[in-house]
Design a protein around this nucleic acid. Structure first.
Lengths: 347, 347
DNA sequence: TTGAAAGCGCTACCAC
DNA sequence: GTGGTAGCGCTTTCAA
């Protein structure tokens, strides 16, 4: 617990000299530099970042607010963000809002109180008064979820294209009764996925019956309930496009519970890929998002802007990055009726 | 960006009075309290936590160092830790060491520079000089991974018992050729799991051939390579006990690649449970750890100790919590030869 | 080249 | 009750 004073005393110099050496300001004689460095080592001195930040008006800390860390999608995004942050000397304060919109506000207030230099945000809720925040407090980059109409800095994927391509795949397999379990329609990602789905059906002159459009909330439970509902319909769909990983999990649970098999009885295509999707049966066909890359790019954009502002930038920015998802065709999707090349592992 | 001075000026009081109101010290007249509170709201004032921490000598921040956030095990532990921390007014600085031992040291130094009040640590590497750290810097609680011989505060599960029970399950199914893919033997969790495995075999008078003991490193790749090796043996095992989730994933990949089926050709039992383990085929039999609870308890122990020290506690503590894992029998384990009740989904 | 001193925003002590 | 003031550990002028 030594301070700069202890170092100065031991080296027989002033604290200003120690500070100059620490920050490599130059202009310190080799003689004194040497003495200071010896003292630094002798005391195992570590500068107090908070005191430094108080003076320098920056904390080298970024706040990350996400809805649910136990969702691998977000865990991977955070991982990508942290890799970039650490390589540039920043640390992360992690805030999990637990899909509770009111926690977003609490978390942002807390981050402001800690004077983070910027925030990466994937909101749990469509927020009002966000403009006030982003303008008055700190630079914010949105990841994955952006409020409709929001026109600020963000990193997203082409949700429309991903859903469109996914649905086309189902259509090309010969499905005509295609259902979807959509996510919360208050964010662009869910809206765009539903639009992509619609567009593909429309182009193929396929109808979208109301009962085939289930509105979930990204959570497992809603996938499960929607799945049960869809599969118990008098005329159940032969293919289901699930708009998030957790809902896909719930859906598979419903499939299992009803004693159905995938893809023989129903094809399942999910948004978000997993490590395990390729090694268990059915091997899931998914729209994979570049999660690590999303976190990485979002953090890069944020830190670039922060450093830009430190060099006198005016804070006008609204960069947007749209990454491409990738359709990974495995064997949870097959032609309706259970025939076709993509059989399950059954012999 | 208002300071306590702005509030004081607007309310027409001194900053000391504002501070007293902010910290509910009492001894401020209703009249002034009211004026201060109005000013607080009018300016949307948020106290500067760093300045506060500099003075108060605590930051209300806990460092969390884990090997890999994209491992759901750790993500869930962090989630449990954060829930507890937030409810007690602490924030988390998250450090992912990426299974790189040298990063542990870097991360701990960084956390010290930021004067976190304590650290939750799941090391990537057996560290030397840890005693110095824990004594001189901040309270540390270990989670899941503890160095052999370490006798400080920690939250772990009964790894020996979990592995023992798991192996007994395989034995009770009639397996005699049982292999294991062990984790890195530099941590107690891996050591204990191997010991539990050994003990169960021994009690059943079953031999453990050298070739049936694969030494992995907790990573997917090592599970894959070990799996390939085991399953290509002239006399391959009929059951494999994999000591971590990622290695189990690699093992399943090897099973698939060799065109084998689980549990018909080989039973697989994994440590760590997943959301999806119950809904895909084979439904994995696993030893489930109470991940959220581990993070929760570890954080509680840490914060209790921090608060104890603030109240004059002497810092002598070495509490240990050992939680119970749970064997979840599904259908990736079955009697050797592929008969038995737990068939895969194949018809 | 070096060091004294003024803060950064806050808490807490001590006069009034 | 209230407010002035001395720091917390650091950076950064500005004199010397």
């Amino acid at each position: 617990m030594h301070t700069i004073h202890d170092v100065a005393r031991l080296a027989g110099v002033s604290i200003a000299t120690v500070s100059a050496v620490l920050n490599k300001k130059g202009g310190v004689s080799a003689e004194l530099t040497d003495r200071v460095e010896k003292a630094l080592v002798a005391l195992d001195y570590q500068p107090h970042q908070l005191a430094r930040g108080l003076k320098a008006r920056r904390t080298q800390t970024i706040g990350v607010v996400i809805p649910d860390l136990t969702n691998t999608f977000f865990a991977e995004v955070v991982r990508g963000a942290e890799d970039e942050a650490r390589s540039r000397g920043y640390s992360l304060i992690l805030c999990d809002s637990n899909e509770d919109g009111s926690m977003d506000r609490t978390n942002l207030d807390n981050l402001y109180a800690r004077r983070v230099d910027g925030v990466l945000l994937s909101p749990s809720h469509v927020m009002s008064g966000l403009d006030r925040l982003s303008q008055r407090r700190f630079p914010i980059v949105f990841v994955d979820r952006i409020p409709p109409g929001f026109d600020g800095p963000a990193v997203v994927i082409d949700n429309f294209g991903g859903a469109y391509q996914a649905t086309q795949h189902l259509i090309s397999l010969g499905h005509t009764r295609i259902a979807t379990i959509a996510g919360r329609q208050d964010f662009c990602n869910a809206i765009d996925r539903l639009e992509g789905f619609r567009k593909a059906l429309q182009e193929a002159d396929l109808p979208l019956h109301d009962e085939y459009l289930q509105r979930g909330d990204f959570q497992l439970e809603s996938g499960y309930r929607s799945g049960l509902h869809l599969l118990r319909l008098p005329k159940p769909p032969t293919a289901i496009f699930s708009c998030s990983n957790k809902m896909t999990l719930g859906l598979m649970s419903a499939v299992t519970e009803l004693g159905l098999r995938c893809p023989e009885n129903v094809s399942v295509l999910g948004f978000d890929d997993f490590d395990w999707a390729a090694n268990f049966s059915p091997r899931l066909t998914t729209v994979a998002q570049p999660t690590h890359e999303m976190g990485h790019q979002a953090m890069r954009m944020l830190l670039d802007e922060i450093q830009n502002r430190e060099h006198g930038g005016n804070g006008n920015w609204n960069k947007k990055v749209m990454l491409k998802p990738e359709l990974r065709i495995r064997n949870s999707t097959a032609p309706p009726g259970g025939s076709g090349p993509a059989r399950a592992s059954a012999s």
